[in-house]
């Protein structure tokens, strides 16, 4: 058995396989629901209803999608250069810390726009710096960034834990490990008054377009793609490979940290250890499902958020464990990766 690349895959092939992957995911999900003792059709219906069945449900899904857009973009940008940033989680928390620090300082008296810009900018800066270390270790000494970025996640969580028990502990928190909260006036406003959706979502979409323009219209985007596809040829051609990797890392780290800024300033208002239920890792799934396309990241982030939000609501109604959401994600990803491969190659014998 061999895989043979297809020169010009037909549109039917390129759309058919991903569609089949989604269909298969639904079939497997139904089987899982059946095993859990529930009616599969009712279960899927409940997931759909919980994710998008009402205005409240839809806004909840978009809110949940917001941090995933940022971490998904962070991963998509880095993976395009074959820079394996597994540390979006750490960068997210770095951004969250700075947001709280700035938002609870004297600067909080600034008007909304400059204050939010300042918080977002400093968050992005800190996220960029967090990824700078691993990328310099990679370019200077060849240290594998998968290891360094992954382990930094744990270091960062412990650091946040220390901050919440120590210097940043909320004196009014009644002993709960959380930080002081931002004043309402220091928070990201909602897009429409009365609807629970904040400007972080809009910022995510703006970032997606910005990344798309960088990738397709600028020399940096061209360099990133060249380095990702063939680092040897890129170096030979005179592309400053190390500089490109550093720029990619700054962009990626900054984007991931914006997820922390957006969650703190837009949604939670304070820093706590459950700020991110693994948004950094889920960002990898989001980016892979989107084939690393920045605009696709928005779509896949909403899809993934919908599955989680819908499953939460379904599990309350149908008494099916929420784990089904994680399994759905895993299955969808596996099928999708396979579908992407099969849409570009055919399997031949011999």
């Amino acid at each position: 058995m061999r895989l043979e690349p297809i020169a010009h895959p037909s549109l039917a092939r390129r759309l058919g396989f991903p569609a089949a992957a989604l269909g298969l995911t639904v079939v497997v999900a139904s089987l899982l629901a059946l095993i859990a003792g529930a009616n599969p059709f009712a279960t899927l219906g409940l997931i759909l209803k919980g994710a998008a069945g009402s205005k409240f449900a839809l806004l909840e899904t978009l809110n949940r999608a917001t941090p995933l857009i940022f971490t998904g973009l962070a991963v998509a940008v880095a993976f395009r250069a074959k820079l394996w940033n597994i540390g979006a989680e750490a960068q997210l928390y770095g951004g969250a810390i700075i947001t709280v620090v700035v938002g609870t300082s004297a600067l909080a008296a600034l008007p909304t726009l400059p204050l939010q810009f300042l918080m977002g900018f400093s968050a992005a800066l800190i996220g960029a710096l967090i990824l700078l270390g691993p990328v310099l270790l990679k370019t200077r000494f060849g240290v594998d960034e998968v290891v360094t970025t992954l382990l930094l996640n744990f270091i960062m969580l412990l650091f946040v834990s220390y901050l919440l028990e120590g210097p940043m502990k909320d004196p009014m928190g009644m002993g709960w490990p959380k930080s002081e909260a931002l004043d309402r006036s220091a928070r990201l406003p909602r897009i429409v008054d009365g609807l629970r959706l904040h400007w972080g979502f809009a910022l995510g979409i703006i970032c997606a377009f910005a990344v798309w323009i960088i990738q397709t219209r600028t020399t940096l985007g061209y360099e990133i793609r060249a380095v990702g596809l063939n680092i040897r040829a890129a170096r030979f051609a005179g592309i400053p490979v190390n500089a490109v990797l550093v720029k990619t890392a700054l962009l990626s780290g900054g984007l991931a940290a914006l997820a922390g800024f957006s969650e703190v300033s837009g949604l939670k208002g304070h820093l706590s250890l459950d700020l991110s239920p693994g948004f950094g890792y889920t960002g990898i799934i989001v980016a892979m499902l989107a084939l690393l396309h920045p605009l696709g990241v928005v779509v896949s982030a909403v899809f993934v958020a919908g599955v989680f939000v819908g499953s939460d609501s379904m599990s309350r109604a149908a008494d099916v464990p929420t784990y089904i959401a994680d399994m759905l994600m895993a299955i969808a990803l596996l099928f999708m990766v396979l579908a992407i491969l099969l849409s570009r190659v055919r399997v031949v014998r011999g």
């Binding site: 219209r217 600028t218 020399t219 940096l220 985007g221 061209y222 360099e223 793609r225 060249a226 596809l229 063939n230 040829a233 890129a234 030979f236 051609a237 005179g238 592309i239």
Partner: peptide
């Protein structure tokens, strides 16, 4: 010499993408 998954245009400009007319001030 080439990047297999780049098209002929992208491969042609590998050494000169930083110079006009292929790019100006960072814009392709």
């Amino acid at each position: 010499g080439t990047i297999a998954d780049f098209d002929l245009t992208e491969n042609t400009i590998l050494e000169t993408y930083m110079d006009p007319p292929v790019s100006h001030a960072g814009w392709m």
